[in-house]
C-alpha cells in the first residue's frame, strides 16, 4: 500500500513510538524526524494500532524493530513469525528493518527478554544462517543490534565486535549500534567502552540507539547496570556517543524509552540533545 521507493532513515533524531504520543507527534514532532516501532506490536489483523501506523507512515520514515525472532536461538527460526515479519515489511515498506543479536525462544517458550549467547564459530555459523533466512524472507538487508550483557561465557572464542564484524561480512547485513548497550556491557564485564567502539565496524552501522539504564551493584559492590529503557540517557553514554559519531559520521539516532514512558516534552528534550550531538558531524 505504500510507495516502494521508501526513503532511508535520515541522519537525524528519531524516537521509539508510543501510542500515547500520537497526537503530539502528528501535531508538532520537532526535532524528531523518524519513528521506530516494535514489529510484534503491529502483528494484529487490524484496529487502532495498524490505523495509527498507516497515518504515521504517511508522514515519517519508519523503522521496524523486531524484538521476538530469536536470531541467536539454537532451534530453527519460527516460520510463522518469519512470515509475519515479511507481511509487515511488505505492507509498510519501512525505511529500515532491524533485529537483535540475542535469543528469546527455546523449546517453544518465548521468554520476552533478549538473552545472551557465547561467541564461537558454531554460534557465528548459526546466527549467519538465521540472518540469511530472515533477509531472504523480508527481501531486504537488515540491521543487527549489539546486546547489553550482564554475564560472560567461558566458551566464547572472540570478542563481540569481531563476532558482529564477521556476521556483517558473511551475510551482508548492516549493524545497529546501541551506545547504551556498549556502556552497560563494558561496565558489567569490565571492558573498555572506547576500545569497543574503536573496534566496531562503523562502515556497517545504519542506525544508533540511545536509552537509559538503571544502576545496581553486584555482590562485590561493583556497579551492575541494567538496560531498563526507563529513564533519560546517562551522561557517560552521551559522552560515548560523541566518540562514536566522530568515528561513524552522521547516523540516524534513536531515543528508546519503553518503561515509565514520560510525557512528550521530556522525550522531545532527549531528541534535541541527540540533534545537538549530531550537529558537529553533519556535513556543512
Amino acid at each position: 500500500m505504500f510507495d516502494h521507493s521508501h526513503p532511508r532513515l535520515p541522519a537525524a533524531p528519531g524516537v521509539g513510538y508510543k501510542a500515547r504520543h500520537y497526537a503530539q507527534i502528528m501535531a508538532d514532532p520537532a526535532p524528531v524526524r523518524w519513528l521506530e516501532i516494535h514489529a510484534e506490536n503491529y502483528m494484529g489483523a487490524g484496529g487502532r494500532p495498524l490505523a495509527q501506523l498507516r497515518h504515521l507512515a504517511e508522514r515519517f520514515p519508519v523503522s521496524v524493530h523486531g524484538v521476538g525472532l530469536s536470531i541467536g536461538g539454537e532451534g530453527p527460526l519460527d516460520p510463522a513469525h518469519l512470515d509475519r515479519l515479511r507481511q509487515l515489511c511488505d505492507w509498510l515498506q519501512p525505511a529500515s528493518f532491524s533485529e537483535h543479536l540475542a535469543w528469546s525462544t527455546h523449546d517453544s517458550a518465548f521468554l520476552n527478554d533478549l538473552l545472551p549467547l557465547p561467541y564461537t564459530g558454531e554460534t557465528l555459523a548459526r546466527v549467519c544462517r538465521h540472518i540469511d533466512q530472515l533477509q531472504e524472507a523480508v527481501g531486504r538487508p537488515m540491521l543487527l543490534e549489539n546486546p547489553s550483557s550482564y554475564l560472560a561465557f567461558e566458551e566464547s572464542e572472540m570478542p563481540e565486535t569481531e563476532f558482529l564484524r564477521e556476521v556483517a561480512r558473511r551475510t551482508g547485513c548492516g549493524l545497529l549500534l546501541d551506545v547504551n548497550n556498549v556502556f552497560v556491557s563494558a561496565v558489567n564485564l569490565g571492558l573498555d567502552p572506547l576500545a569497543y567502539v574503536g573496534d566496531f565496524p562503523m562502515a556497517a552501522v545504519g542506525e544508533i540507539h540511545l536509552g537509559g539504564h538503571d544502576e545496581e551493584e553486584d555482590e562485590a559492590g561493583r556497579p551492575l547496570l541494567i538496560d531498563s529503557h526507563g529513564r533519560e540517557v546517562a551522561d557517560p553514554v552521551w559522552a560515548l556517543l560523541e566518540a562514536v559519531l566522530a568515528l561513524s559520521g552522521p547516523r540516524p539516532l534513536l531515543i528508546e524509552w519503553d518503561n515509565d514512558v514520560p510525557d512528550w516534552p521530556v522525550l522531545a528534550t532527549q531528541a534535541r540533545r541527540a540533534e545537538a550531538a549530531l550537529a558537529p558531524v553533519q556535513p556543512s
Binding site: 510484534e40 494484529g44 525462544t105 521468554l111
Partner: peptide, 8 residues
C-alpha cells in the same frame, strides 16, 4: 510462558 512473541 508465552508460546508466541506477540505479547498482546
Amino acid at each position: 510462558p508465552p508460546r508466541d512473541p506477540r505479547m498482546f
